[in-house]
């Protein structure tokens, strides 16, 4: 199948991990993005396990770009955002699709940010940008390390601004992160990606 690479492949794969306070942080961050963009967003957010998630519908109403709950083996397209499903780990495949596993919790979390970050790094190396937002546990720090080791970048929400500091602090403690900034700065950095590419 021949496809126009500009339309079907993302420039960067932006993976976001968050938990406690994550919905508000995401609302603020997403609301500041200039759409359409050429990168793709994949988000793991910790949620209650048995609740049917309506997050994708909520976000989709708020922002001018497509927000979807990740479907299994779905192709990641530029300009779109994909959100995890409660109780399933979300993984990135080398062919640019998303997949799921119901394997044991990691850091007591399913979905786990580490699992998303590690598989994204394995699949797309230096094309990956990780963003760690507010959260009350350490999930994501280990995965952020993998991302840097494979040439990707790691941005962290300023713990001073984050509703829960544990998650950003854990990543900052583990690695020398590429950027610590508030949500305005993070949004600006993502918007500026468009300029360079």
């Amino acid at each position: 199948m021949l496809m126009n690479p500009d339309k079907t492949t993302f420039s960067k794969l932006v993976v976001i991990g968050t938990s406690w306070g994550g919905i508000d942080a995401l609302k603020a961050l997403l609301g500041r993005l200039n759409a359409p963009f050429t990168f793709a967003l994949v988000v793991v957010i910790h949620q209650e396990r048995h609740k049917k998630s309506h997050l994708s519908t909520i976000f989709a109403r708020m922002v001018p770009f497509p927000v979807l709950e990740a479907e299994d083996k779905q192709q990641i397209l530029p300009g779109n955002m994909y959100i995890s499903t409660p109780n399933y780990h979300l993984l990135v495949e080398q062919d640019g699709t998303l997949s799921h596993t119901i394997d044991s919790a990691v850091n007591f979390c399913r979905p786990s940010v580490d699992v998303l970050f590690q598989t994204a790094a394995d699949a797309f190396g230096d094309r990956v940008i990780a963003i760690v937002l507010t959260g009350a546990n350490q999930d994501g720090a280990e995965g952020a390390k993998w991302i840097q080791q494979r040439g990707g970048k790691v941005y962290v929400q300023d713990p001073k601004e984050a509703e829960a500091k544990v998650m950003p602090l854990a990543t900052i403690a583990k690695i020398d992160v590429d950027l610590i900034g508030n949500l305005d700065t993070l949004a600006l950095t993502l918007n500026n990606l468009e300029r360079k590419t």
Partner: peptide, 9 residues
């Protein structure tokens, strides 16, 4: 099999 989970295992 899908590679990401299998590789992890």
């Amino acid at each position: 099999y899908s590679k990401a989970s299998l590789t992890r295992r």
